[in-house]
């Protein structure tokens, strides 16, 4: 069995384990979706009981888990009590929205962080490195909640950008190009928040990785052979720094579905965040489990991408170090 097959099997087992735990905790938590109805004097206890048995909530835990697995295998991923539809169709739309936002933000964050990290590492201890360090420290200490609120405040004050939502009212009536512009303008605030929030950590990790390679004996040896400038950076330093950075990229990918939940709720982006929040509050158990499983899947996929990248980039991993 080769390395990749082992990793895939490992990932599937992990998913199964997470599903059991998630299901157990979700179901064992006190209260269920229909508890709120009991407070309504117009709904008789008999109706509530009938609804509970209709949805199978009165069944014992293993049986419910079995039925859930069955529905997963059918491709429905359980049933949402609140939306009265299979979880899958619900999740697909929301996950798509989240991925649009987070993929864009992650891509942007890396595109900004990579040159910034490499630059500050090369300018270690100089004024621009210190400025970068101060900037990342400042950003690191500001919670993303505050960043989002400040951006929203600015948007509301200046009316330059829509504050919340994904598209404007009457989106359907717009032309293709206008639709794209509308969508992009709605993306700015949540995406900017995510970029600003993830930037400092990325920059610091990249700077540290590059710095470590810059101090490696083989970089000094290359300099001693008269290799310098861009050639040294691109041929010697960056390929060697790619090893730790591909793990970091795996983490970035792993967070694609779960890293933006709070920001989505604050900025009103109709992604997984608001859905998960509503579902948790309403005890819409299958939706919660579905969302958690989806983000677990991304975590596992992210680390797998990182592993594959490592194999591709590092001959020591690929060929086995002696």
């Amino acid at each position: 069995m080769n390395y990749l097959e082992r990793r895939v099997i490992h990932g599937v087992l992990l998913l199964a384990g997470v599903s059991v735990l998630c299901f157990a905790f979700g179901v064992m938590a006190p209260g269920d979706f229909f508890d709120e109805m009991k407070l309504n004097p117009q709904i008789s206890p008999a109706t509530v009981a009938a609804l509970r048995s209709q949805y199978g909530i009165d069944q014992p835990l293993p049986l419910r888990y079995g039925r859930w697995v069955e529905s997963v295998l059918r491709g429905e991923w359980g049933y949402s009590f609140a939306y009265n539809c299979p979880v899958r169709s619900l999740l697909m739309v929301r996950a798509g929205n989240t991925l649009l936002l987070t993929t864009l933000a992650t891509l942007l964050a890396w595109l900004i962080a990579l040159p910034l990290g490499v630059w500050t590492a090369n300018r270690r201890g100089r004024w621009d490195d210190r400025l970068g360090l101060a900037g990342t420290t400042l950003l690191l200490s500001v919670p993303e909640l505050v960043i989002a609120l400040v951006l929203l405040y600015l948007a509301v004050r200046t009316h330059a950008l829509p504050a919340g939502g994904m598209v404007s009212v009457g989106f359907g009536g717009l032309g293709k190009q206008a639709q794209l512009i509308d969508l992009a303008s709605h993306l700015v605030i949540p995406a900017a928040t995510l970029v600003l929030a993830s930037l400092p950590l990325l920059v610091r990790h990249i700077r540290a990785s590059v710095l470590e390679v810059l101090q490696a004996p083989f970089v000094q040896a290359a300099r001693a052979h008269g290799i310098g400038g861009a050639r040294l950076l691109f041929r010697y330093v960056l390929p060697a720094a790619a090893n730790p950075l591909s793990s970091l990229l795996g983490l970035s990918i792993g967070g694609l579905l779960s890293g933006s939940l709070l920001v989505e709720v604050i900025t009103g982006w109709p992604g997984m965040g608001p859905l998960l929040l509503e579902a948790s509050l309403a005890r819409d158990v299958h939706v919660v489990i579905g969302a958690v499983m989806a983000s677990t899947f991304f975590m596992i996929a992210g680390s797998m991408v990182a592993d594959v990248l490592l194999v591709v980039l590092d001959p020591r991993v690929r060929l086995g170090s002696t």
Binding site: A216, P217, F218, Q220, A221, A222, R223, A224, H225, G226, I227, G228, G229, R235, Y236, P239, A240, A242, N243, L313, D314, P315, R316
Partner: peptide
């Protein structure tokens, strides 16, 4: 840079560490 490697060259203590591991 024009002198190093061309006119004056160096051999380092640890040859294993003075070569890039990924090249």
């Amino acid at each position: 840079r024009g002198i190093r490697g061309a006119r004056i060259a160096m051999v380092f203590q640890e040859p294993g560490l003075s070569l890039s591991p990924v090249m």
